Simulated assay, not measured.
Amino acid sequence: MPRRTATLIASTLTLIALLCVALLTPAPYAEMSPGPTVNTLGDYGGDTVIQISGRQTYPADGHLNMTTVRVTGADYRMNLVEALLGWARHDDKVVEHDTLYPPGQTAEQADQENAEEFSQSQDSAKVAALDELHIPVQSRVIVAAVVKGGAAEGTLHAGDVIKAVDGTKVTQSDQVAQLVTKHKPGEPVVFTVVRAADVKSKSAPTHQVTVTTRESHDQGPSRAVVGIQAGIEHTYPFTIDIKLADVGGPSAGMMFALGIIDKLTPGNMTGGNFVAGTGTIDDNGTVGPIGGISLKTIGARDKGARFFLTPADNCEEAAKDVPKGLTLVKVKTLDDAMAALTNIKSGNDAALPSCTG
């Protein structure tokens, strides 16, 4: 066999072997890409996204689109070829797997965490929206979860309403931990509660429940604990349901709040414009940062958005690569977002606070 032919065959076989290794070798990366954008004023998957009953609503034109990022699953392992192709594509982003999924976290745990964050974001969106419209919302401190094997297991239950701790009335969830940690491990703490089964009763009895504290064994400082997680449960004067399957995480909160407000007020807030955006929201209407901002702006523009409501803390990153024809609008609060929509509706684009790099 001529030497040149032998060399060509050897090189080809080596290349095939390297390609097989690249295809079979898992890489410690995950891939992110633009996901669906959904109009909170419209329908998705056969359901109206925001459904309100028990209160007058109004037609809302235009778009207030929440945006998403599509990510590879927690159990999926990219190979080296997929990672290289992902790095080469402008609309995709390859990141270290552990930045999305902490070591040891299962796919089921990741899905559960995303679902819980999504549910919390909906709740905060409702509270913030109704507060913006000066509609009162009732709240109460509850036992959100009981640690298995913890001191309170069997005596306190998820859904119990905590009225007081050691006789001190509580109105915020963080007060519970503050009052418990005033004790030393081994000391009793007395909870005044309304049982979850009795909450809907107008004359629900209260119960005194004594729990003996234990010493904490987490990464924080040593302290007295009882093994519960306190939370806030809100009671609304009418029903607001958000129907959106296969979406998780907290980043749609601001857009949900704006959609609720638009449906509960006459006229429309967008003036028929296509506005998209992202951002977490808390009960007070503060807008927080999210991940994958550059992918969300790409997805929004591809769907036709002209304006993108951008959390202030994401502005610098988003401004590095703005899709052509998209205006980034900087927002820190729900009030900022409302003011921006007023300017967009009136065509006063010059008044919009912009994101700069």
Results as ranks from 00 to 15, higher is better:
138 Q>I: 06
303 K>I: 00
192 T>M: 00
155 T>I: 05
204 A>Y: 12
292 G>A: 04
98 D>M: 08
341 L>A: 08
135 I>A: 06
241 D>S: 12
209 V>R: 03
89 R>Q: 09
36 P>S: 08
298 I>N: 05
81 V>Y: 01
263 K>R: 13
171 T>M: 14
249 G>S: 11
61 D>L: 09
211 V>C: 07
203 S>T: 12
247 V>N: 13
228 I>C: 10
82 E>W: 04
273 N>F: 00
342 T>V: 14
76 Y>F: 13
312 A>F: 07
181 T>S: 13
82 E>P: 15
48 T>F: 00
117 E>P: 01
125 A>M: 11
106 T>Q: 14
296 K>F: 00
51 Q>H: 13
328 L>R: 09
283 D>V: 13
63 H>V: 15
8 L>V: 09
100 L>I: 05
217 H>A: 06
187 E>H: 05
239 T>R: 12
54 G>Q: 13
303 K>F: 04
161 V>F: 00
107 A>P: 03
357 G>R: 11
176 V>C: 04
198 D>E: 13
191 F>M: 05
66 M>F: 01
264 L>G: 13
93 K>Y: 04
259 G>N: 14
288 G>R: 06
119 S>N: 11
144 A>W: 00
68 T>E: 13
167 G>V: 13
240 I>P: 10
329 V>D: 08
109 Q>H: 06
242 I>D: 08
236 Y>D: 06
266 P>S: 12
268 N>G: 14
135 I>R: 03
212 T>V: 12
101 Y>G: 14
171 T>H: 14
186 G>W: 02
71 V>M: 15
167 G>D: 05
193 V>F: 03
184 K>Y: 03
262 D>W: 08
188 P>R: 02
249 G>I: 08
18 L>D: 03
238 F>W: 00
181 T>I: 02
77 R>E: 05
88 A>P: 01
130 L>N: 06
329 V>I: 07
140 R>W: 06
110 A>V: 13
216 S>G: 12
290 I>Q: 11
141 V>Y: 06
77 R>K: 15
165 V>F: 04
317 E>Q: 11
5 T>R: 13
225 V>Y: 02
226 V>G: 00
72 T>I: 08
35 G>S: 07
36 P>H: 12
232 I>Y: 04
145 A>T: 14
2 P>Q: 05
257 A>S: 11
278 T>Y: 08
298 I>V: 14
106 T>W: 14
52 I>K: 02
184 K>F: 06
191 F>D: 12
84 L>R: 07
164 A>L: 09
204 A>H: 06
120 Q>S: 15
338 M>E: 12
299 G>T: 10
21 V>T: 10
281 I>S: 06
68 T>R: 10
314 N>T: 02
178 Q>G: 14
